[in-house]
């Protein structure tokens, strides 16, 4: 159990219409306790999970988007969001929630967890993992 592996959670589905986004987040939360090198990828419809101003009062479903902002406390600090997926959907990084973490290696400075990457960079990130969990 001492070996550290690179885990990538690939999120390609929108929230609420199906349960995948929520149950993916539940795996991330549990997985955080295992001290692995964790990254989250958001591409295709997965980018919709990170939109600001989600309000689920009208559909009677729990709004789980605030949980993303808590992940920094669990040392989950790498949220890779694909630029092309945003652009295709008429979105920019400004449409996404502010998700930050305190960098313990840099005097606990607050830093953004979301890193917008282009498609080639996303492909390289995917190709640099030990375990890829797809949702």
């Amino acid at each position: 159990m001492s070996e550290i592996k690179k885990f990538l959670y690939v999120n390609r589905k929108a929230p609420y219409g199906t349960i995948y986004a929520l149950e993916s987040l539940e795996v991330v939360l549990i997985g955080a306790a295992f001290d692995q090198d964790v990254s989250l990828a958001f591409l295709d419809d997965g980018v919709f999970q990170l939109l600001k101003k989600q309000d689920t009062a009208g559909i009677g479903v729990k709004n789980f988007s605030p949980t993303f902002r808590a992940l920094g406390d669990y040392d989950v600090t790498k949220f890779y969001v694909e630029q092309e997926s945003l652009t295709e959907r008429g979105l920019t990084a400004d449409d996404l929630m502010d998700i930050t973490y305190e960098d313990e290696d840099d005097d606990y400075e607050e830093k953004p967890s979301i890193r917008v990457v282009n498609r080639d960079e996303m492909a390289a990130i995917m190709g640099d993992q030990d375990v890829v969990l797809s949702f």
Binding site: L43, D44, E84, M122, A123, G127
Partner: peptide, 28 residues
């Protein structure tokens, strides 16, 4: 270092195959 990608959706129903193709690297 290379990846085996699996695609289980018809490309006429979803963009999954296109997305996979966009992220496959040489040697995959």
């Amino acid at each position: 270092m290379s990846t085996l990608h699996t695609v289980n959706k018809s490309p006429f129903a979803t963009t999954t195959l296109a997305s996979c193709l966009n992220h496959a690297l040489e040697g995959d």
